Amino acid sequence: MKLSELKAGDRAEVTSVAAEPAVRRRLMDLGLVRGAKLKVLRFAPLGDPIEVNCNGMLLTMRRNEAEGITVHILAGDEGHPHGWPGFRRRHRFGKRA
């Protein structure tokens, strides 16, 4: 299955990255290598670009770049040994106005 076919909230593991050499190298430098766990966060209103959380890093990529990334969907908390790490919540200190 391709990364571009996933829905927001889906978790997956990268199985291969196929793109033109410069784009492939850049994606791999950003951490999208075989075995990397990721979570699809959201899509832009027209479906392009896609925001992905990969190893704690937020990546935004175009749909045509995501079509070159083959993934395997993970069920439950299979992607992380201690469950999927949630996002840090912003805390306000002091009184709210």
Score class of each variant (00 low, 15 high):
H72F: 07
M61I: 13
K2M: 09
L38S: 03
V40E: 03
S4P: 01
G31H: 05
A22H: 11
M28N: 00
K39A: 13
E65F: 12
K39C: 15
G76L: 06
A36C: 00
A8R: 09
D48W: 07
D77C: 05
W84G: 00
G47H: 07
N53Y: 12
M28E: 15
T15P: 00
L59N: 07
P85K: 00
T60K: 12
P21L: 00
H80T: 05
T60P: 03
L30K: 15
F93A: 12
N53S: 14
W84M: 11
A18H: 12
C54K: 02
R96I: 08
I50H: 01
K7D: 07
R11K: 12
P45E: 12
D10Q: 11
G35I: 06
L32P: 09
H80W: 14
R26K: 12
M1I: 10
P21N: 06
L3G: 05
H72P: 00
L27N: 05
A18S: 13
T70Y: 05
R88F: 01
A75D: 14
H91N: 11
L3T: 06
A18F: 06
I50M: 04
V52K: 02
D48Q: 04
A66T: 03
I50W: 02
W84N: 11
R25P: 01
E67Y: 03
V17K: 07
R92D: 08
T60A: 15
V33Q: 11
T15A: 03
R63G: 02
D77G: 10
E51G: 00
R62I: 04
R63S: 12
S4E: 03
R11I: 09
M61E: 13
A19Y: 02
F93M: 11
K39Y: 04
L74F: 05
H80K: 05
R92Q: 09
R11E: 10
V14I: 15
G47N: 04
L46H: 11
V23H: 06
D77T: 06
E51Y: 04
E65K: 04
H82T: 09
K37D: 07
G79N: 00
I50V: 06
H80M: 08
K37N: 12
R25D: 12
G83A: 01
E20D: 14
G35C: 10
A75M: 09
G9E: 08
L74V: 04
V23I: 14
G31L: 05
E78L: 08
D77E: 15
W84C: 03
W84Y: 14
G76N: 08
R96Y: 02
E5N: 14
G86C: 02
E78I: 01
H82S: 14
C54M: 06
R96M: 08
G56K: 00
V17P: 04
P81F: 10
H72D: 10
V40D: 07
L6F: 01
R89K: 13
